[in-house]
Design a protein around this nucleic acid. Sequence first.
DNA 1: CTGAAAGCGCTTACAG
DNA 2: CTGAAAGCGCTTACAG
Lengths: 375, 375
Amino acid sequence: MSRKRSTLRDVAQKAGVTVSTVSRLLNNKPLTVPVTDTTRQRVLEAAKSLEYTPNRLARGLVAAKTHILGMSFPITSPLNRIDHRDVTYINLGMLISGVQNVLQARGYELHIFNRIEHNQHPDAPIRRMNYDFIDGLIYVEPNPCYPYYEDVAEAGLPMVMLGQTRIRHTVHTVCAEDRVEMRKLVGALIRQGRRRIAYVLNVMNEPPMDVIERMEGYSLAHKDAGIPVDPILLRRERASEVPLAVTLDALLTLRPAVDALIIGRTEIGEDTLKHLLASGVRVPEDMEVVVIGDDRFFEATRPRLSAMRLGYLERGMAAARLLLDALEGGAEDALHMPVHWTFIERDSCALRDAIQPADDVASNAHVQEGRITSQ
Amino acid sequence: MSRKRSTLRDVAQKAGVTVSTVSRLLNNKPLTVPVTDTTRQRVLEAAKSLEYTPNRLARGLVAAKTHILGMSFPITSPLNRIDHRDVTYINLGMLISGVQNVLQARGYELHIFNRIEHNQHPDAPIRRMNYDFIDGLIYVEPNPCYPYYEDVAEAGLPMVMLGQTRIRHTVHTVCAEDRVEMRKLVGALIRQGRRRIAYVLNVMNEPPMDVIERMEGYSLAHKDAGIPVDPILLRRERASEVPLAVTLDALLTLRPAVDALIIGRTEIGEDTLKHLLASGVRVPEDMEVVVIGDDRFFEATRPRLSAMRLGYLERGMAAARLLLDALEGGAEDALHMPVHWTFIERDSCALRDAIQPADDVASNAHVQEGRITSQ
DNA sequence: CTGAAAGCGCTTACAG
DNA sequence: CTGAAAGCGCTTACAG
């Protein structure tokens, strides 16, 4: 509690002017003729010597703007984050970092909300949050449904939805497009001659929404090419029930032979590769391999594993940009901003069709997803 | 922007009383005789029908309390989070979840700050944050140093440090105690007869602070028991330079044989185990194995891997509790709250000495660290 | 028990 | 160009 915060009045007093003058000066208000230089000098000096800093609560009260954005997550329970509808810890961290990165650059701060009840008790009354402190909200919800964000909409709070699918309501949306991206990936593999493309889901429980969309994309790509899907190539075994090796061995005995493999989870990338090599499969000659979800360790495997970056950091950044633009640009039509996967080409698979040009962020080789190096 | 937020005045008007009355009533102020029942009724009804909700900005301005806590992270760059002094994405997510969990229960919200400049340019001027919106701050900094949080201290803002070591200044601290915990772990192994305890760091770059402390703990435990440390058992090879298999093979040729192995990173748990088994090592008979950092997949390996939970979730919770208690309990002496590792006993290692009793959180089998199941 | 008033620290028309 | 005043929405002594 050291010495008391100095206020506008303190500065005014010290400079021998009114608070109005100080306020205007400090906010660069008088766009016309510059204030008397002496006045300006005195005020600035006073403010400096008093280490004046405006009280943002007061400012927010009158301006009805706080320069804070909110971010709201669906969480079953922070202590029990095993529900796939939840956001995993790493995604939480990456989303927040992405958002923070752009907010920081544009002079905003971040306020965090958890929404526990929604997913747990779908019909429980929704606890209304108080949004006085924020100018806008990023609403993270893989499976949006109106009642969830009804209170936000009613409050007239600018918001952007960050999820898996686009909702029909008129809200800005950043979404993942797993169906589209998977379709592109599989399509590219087919176009370069692969005909037996296996896809190992390796899910933990029921396939979550993103995985369901990927399966659809997998089928669509085959339909696009007029190739029937061989259901045996789609491996839905659960990680907890069937050892990875069993799933892979089943694939390896198939004829015609599998000639491409999409690994559904980052974590099993290395193990899968090892198993293939140990079984005498030549990668990528016999089988092209792509992992969904990149990992910096894929640089270290031999051959190095090609992978798709999912772009959580980018999703956060996109959402923040969209919201800020909406806030500053006024009311435009609801925008829909798809976030794409980025193909990280290494040894295990090359794609002749460029799937997605690497953007500035994606080309930053240090950005990693998936496993974490230290905990 | 729908219909305008109703204010205290609206409610007062509708109820035919003054704002003072409404304010007191809604805040349960008149602890003495209950207000006239009719008055109370009318006010409550008016508030309800108007969907009145206090403006927290205004309330914060007069009360100088917002019921918001801040959390400040050291970050080199959100896009380039490879510096070990940074908080990894998963830890970021877990810390935030832990904090949120207790804040939520106690009616507080969370505000997030990033501190970019500190670590990057140690002598760059520290950009002062504005803390008007928060009642207290959780300062995450593995390597605290006064100038870093000087501004917080000067602002007289209640804070708790969340880091690796205790700082000498009089601030509340939650810290990790890696030295102590490693010493306990190695000590327990020694006491149950293990004499050749290997420790594979598998670091990415320079060992970060927590790993350095673990090495110290490793040595201390040996000193405690009067056993000299054989430096060859301490494997500092970098993950990016030396394949894990090479490190392990080097260990396996040693005589006297290695009889216990501490795996320094969660991510290499399974691979290490496989390599050992493939080399004919019996786990745990020939070699007891413990991983630092738990992973739910260790339930699925054969034998199942014992591991130490590091407790990031708990650190967040502890910090939040400490801060809230300090805030509500008044000014006590600076508290120091160590957060312990929790031994998760499975097949690969049993500890006859209880290292640390599992607390309520740790005993929640669903809490996982390390790898993430979906991204 | 309830009202009238001052004040939290700022911004913003409205007058000089 | 600058001052006096009202007001943002609330809380809290101080009087009735």
